[in-house]
């Protein structure tokens, strides 16, 4: 059989025999579904809806947590990278040696020793400043003043 062109097939489809068959097919009885079928479908749909709701709720909770974790991980990664970068100009290259903080007890001992030393030199009645001041004043007395005494 020769293949038909587009116009030819349109013509053949409009032939009465073809149209009778079309009418027969169109008039075939409808296939109604049963109520049991429908209620079974409703149950399945409700299950599907519940399952979707569960999945959606799970993601509503999980998604922000995952996003927060990812953000934290990223922040830690960025901080780690900044800490391990090479030092710039003027920044110390060697390890920083920590100097121990001055001990309070040794400070007190030092202060006490100095005070004892001063008292040994100047005597108990005069303070070191007084010693120096009196000696300075003594230096300003003239010989005539001494004679008057």
């Amino acid at each position: 059989m020769k293949p038909m062109g587009p116009d030819r097939i349109d013509e053949r489809l409009e032939e009465s025999g073809q149209q009778v068959v079309r009418a027969l097919v169109r008039d075939l009885p409808e296939e109604p579904v049963s109520l049991a079928w429908r209620s079974e479908l409703n149950e399945k749909l409700n299950k599907a809806a519940a399952s979707r709701r569960r999945v959606r709720r799970f993601w509503n909770i999980t998604a922000p947590s995952l996003a927060l974790s990812a953000a934290c991980a990223l922040a830690f990664m960025m901080l780690g990278r900044t800490g391990s970068q090479a030092p710039g100009i003027g920044q110390p290259t060697g390890p920083v040696v920590s100097r121990p903080a001055p001990d309070l007890a040794s400070e007190l001992v030092n202060a006490h020793q100095e005070a004892v030393f001063v008292s040994d030199v100047a005597g108990s009645g005069l303070a070191p400043t007084e010693v120096s001041e009196s000696s300075a004043q003594h230096g300003n007395i003239s010989d005539s003043d001494l004679e008057l005494l």
Binding site: Q18, V20, V21, R22
Partner: peptide, 9 residues
Amino acid sequence: LFLARAHLQ
């Protein structure tokens, strides 16, 4: 469609 109708015919 033509073949299907022809078969049914």
